[in-house]
Nucleic acid binder design. Structure first.
Lengths: 209, 209
DNA sequence: AAGGCCATAGGGGGCAACCCCCGATCTGGG
DNA sequence: CCCAGATCGGGGGTTGCCCCCTATGGCCTT
């Protein structure tokens, strides 16, 4: 099994490599120190599996996952999350990840996750499963309404502190259209102003804080 | 040289251990998964050096440092920091740490830091030195760019998507006062609107995304 | 005593954001 | 073929953000 690992900390990459290479059938074929590098390597090397940290420079693990699944959908992705952070779980799954493992449990759960992915099954730690169930129950079965690509693009630009006029120029649209996309996004998300959109964009990994 | 390592992620401990044990004169005599355990082991084992992650359960690396330096001052402490987080640099030095190393640079800087500590010298990465110098210069010469407690409080509430009116009610102030604090904070930080304040507040850890 | 910073409060004004309506065009799927 | 949804564009209005200014009382340092 050919694996790519991506984390901005050399120490973590060493630890992962050590853990993985104790397995006779696993080979680490590439290491990346940021999200953009991870995406490029995944597209070029086509590993069986990419293990990505959530928090990386250039592209977050979530952004990298989206791009990898678009450009090389046969590459499976496992997301590694710091802390007790399960807030990215939902987004990770929507981005196309096959599993979500907390770093604190990485040494015990990671191999189980890899074996699951190998069999083509998804993998979630028990904690992650609990979080997911809680989320689904809270949001109702569907989750929140999804944004269209255009709406998401506008939200991203809003969150980067562009004014309506600037966004209109960037996208070659009228200010009115930009306002409409922003308003529709806010309505779908149940938000009242740009400030809430910023936090949403950061949670979604659309922008860096 | 007898070393203790403390980090809540097994993967990171593995990576550290791997790195350190390649050195013939370094022996990892203890591993801790949280701050309290790190303190207890440091006091009992009296290693020459304790390498502590900033963010750990029970006691943070900084709290653990303070307690270790009080109960076993001959133990040197190196702080390992996640992210690009240099915000704990001052506190670490104040707590008695001999050095501050970013995890992203751990594999290259950590050994240099250990050798410095061995010689009884302090160690800061070039980035940390720059941060320190920048801060000293800012505080020394021109008006300091730090926010007053009131300004920070207002910024936090702004970033939580409260309107000026809501903040005024929460703090029992006039809207005008809130506006002044917000405007002063924005001027100090060189920002133009609330959207930028949100990202600042998240970077500073004032609020969660 | 004087000057400095801070927290408090206010006036007035320009403009962007936000809200509620509306319609036109194009596309994909039943 | 028609309908739904996405995209694009607009009118017209209220609110709140943001910027400019002044001012007072409390506290600390000089």
């Amino acid at each position: 099994m050919r694996v790519l690992i991506a984390d901005d900390h050399g120490i973590v990459r060493s630890g992962l490599r050590l853990l993985l290479e104790r397995q006779p059938d696993i080979e680490v074929v590439a290491e990346a120190a940021d999200g953009a590098e991870a995406r490029d390597l995944a597209v070029r090397e086509r590993p069986d599996l990419a293990i990505l940290d959530v928090k990386m420079p250039n592209l977050t693990g979530l952004q990298a996952t989206r791009e990898i699944k678009r450009q090389a959908p046969e590459v499976s992705v496992l997301i590694l999350s710091m802390h007790d952070d399960e807030r990215y779980l939902f987004e990770a799954l929507k981005a196309g990840a096959s599993g979500y493992v907390l770093k604190a449990q990485a040494d015990t759960d990671l191999l189980a996750a890899i074996r699951a992915v190998e069999r083509g099954e998804p993998f979630l730690t028990p904690e992650a499963q609990r979080t997911l169930i809680k989320d689904v129950l809270e949001r109702g079965s569907t989750g929140e309404e999804e944004l269209t690509p255009r709406e998401e693009e506008v939200v991203k630009l809003v969150a980067e502190a562009n004014t309506t006029k600037q966004i209109a120029e960037l996208l070659h649209l009228s200010e009115k259209t930009v306002e409409n996309h922003r308003a529709n996004a806010m309505r779908k998300l149940g938000m009242r102003d740009r400030v809430e959109l910023v936090r949403y964009a950061i949670r979604r990994g659309l922008i860096e804080p």
